[in-house]
Write a protein that binds this DNA or RNA. Structure first.
Lengths: 270, 270
DNA sequence: GCAAAAGTGTTCTTCGTACACCCATGA
DNA sequence: TCATGGGTGTACGAAGAACACTTTTGC
């Protein structure tokens, strides 16, 4: 038997943190799991987490464990509940403080650093260790609630993104479908998105040489007509059009976000 | 030195629960505090709470402590966060799982059972022990958020109540003022309120003997005119009017509430 | 060229908000 | 009788929801 040298007058539970990390691959919401290498639940999948050190608070502990076990170095995690049922861990009385986090797509690749960490689509999550199935449901629930009030969705996407990508993300989280036009409108009117100027070298070459007359678009029903229109217009007002190649990209306005945080008035009704 | 007989291989923090109990006296929101009888913070006020036993989960522990320290026997409390800063308790590393609760006015009196428990109006709360000042702010914040999505306000009122009472409660919690007509409208259209039939013996005597013609109310500008009107009408359709004596009372429709819980679609925008 | 996805405006309805007067009660 | 508080309806504006067609792209 190991030496037990930390003694107390009254029994103390152990305290762990667990972190439910959500990621997004452009289609589906995913969660990051690690395969347990030791008993109990050896070989089972579970959320990254572990015992809290005595010199760190719960948030610090959760971030540390996350980095240790998955390589993910995040800044923002959100506590969503504690799990304290008496027999939730067969070893001893363990109370877990649970967080959820959102990781950008680019960070998802970084997750591979950790040998046993892997992303799972939400509908492919295996049976998890401990009460982590329940924990996942609770995390999803909280995420769904929070997304109405905090523009957290952006943490799941890269530096910039298209509106349909953002819409798919919201649809994946909330499990509903939105009308595209209404989604555009609502997102834009929050003022939290900046339209990204597409760099010159990503534009197709001919956009520097041709233009279309806006007023003629209505009549231009077929490709042939469109081509004709292009050549018939010598005036270059192409900036409006060049931006429209292959999906307008947006970036997330951090300044506006902080303003929302401060005023606590972000709200996205769906 | 006391014997320390509970030993672990690794250090364990102590775990406590704390409960922020809100009450309402018809005017102001109050919180229930207990005066600490022992160090640390002896003589200071703090929220009821204490160390978690090993055979109970956090909710059970919080309810037990609440009953022990204040005499309050509640059923529903809501976890709103954990407090885990390293030095938040001078004795040892203590992590607190915090709940808030709502107590009916009638229960408020029951609080006197416990010698050192006392209700404080929110703006008269003294400096609290530990990090309980911070805890109170967090609890308030959570209550304000939650009240939009759960009809929890009703837990603070008695069996039945008038609309102005309910309005005052919401105003006290949210710290704003509502237009009376709009408040009525919104509350009634949630469908969560049932109008309470006033028992016969609470009606003024003459309501069993007189009636008014609805259509004549417009012309009845003064008391004299009203009295005349009463005597001029022999037809008894008094149910409409009898209910209007001294404040229409409403009760909270539990069935509708459960429905909201299930469908998760209660929402009260202000 | 064909199918799939991106981009765009308008109308209708719903809901929130602002607002004023009468009646009942109790001091 | 007077002051306070309870009870009621309407009109306006903002925002959500429903809806179709054109352009672009990638296969």
């Amino acid at each position: 038997m190991e030496e037990k040298k930390f003694c107390y007058k009254y029994p103390h539970p152990a305290v762990t943190t667990d972190c439910v990390v959500f990621g997004f691959d452009g289609r589906e919401l995913k969660v990051l799991l690690i395969e347990r290498g030791v008993d109990p639940y050896k070989g089972c999948w579970a959320f990254p987490g572990g015992f809290l050190n005595m010199d760190e608070n719960a948030t610090q502990g959760a971030l540390r464990e996350l980095a240790e076990e998955t390589g993910l170095k995040l800044e923002h995690i959100k506590e969503f509940g504690t799990f304290s049922d008496v027999n939730r861990d067969p070893r001893e009385r363990v109370i877990s403080i649970a967080f959820y986090a959102l990781a950008k797509k680019s960070d998802v690749k970084g997750g591979d650093d950790a040998a046993k960490a892997q992303w799972f689509a939400l509908n492919e999550v295996p049976r998890l260790a401990f009460d982590h199935d329940y924990m996942l449901r609770k995390a999803m629930q909280k995420l769904k609630e929070d997304i109405h009030f905090e523009p957290i969705g952006f943490d799941l996407l890269g530096e910039n993104f298209t509106m349909p990508e953002l819409q798919r993300l919201y649809e994946a989280i909330l499990g509903v479908h939105f009308d595209r036009r209404n989604f555009y409108k609502k997102m834009l009117q929050t003022g939290i998105l900046d339209e990204v100027e597409k760099p010159e070298d990503e534009r197709p070459a001919f956009f520097g040489e041709h233009c279309e007359m806006r007023s003629m678009d209505i009549g231009a029903l077929f490709g042939g007509a469109t081509k004709e229109t292009r050549h018939s217009c010598p005036t270059p007002h192409l900036d409006d059009d060049s931006r429209r190649k292959k999906g307008t990209r947006f970036s997330f306005n951090k300044k506006r976000y902080d303003q929302f945080k401060e005023d606590n008035n972000f709200r996205l009704e769906f």
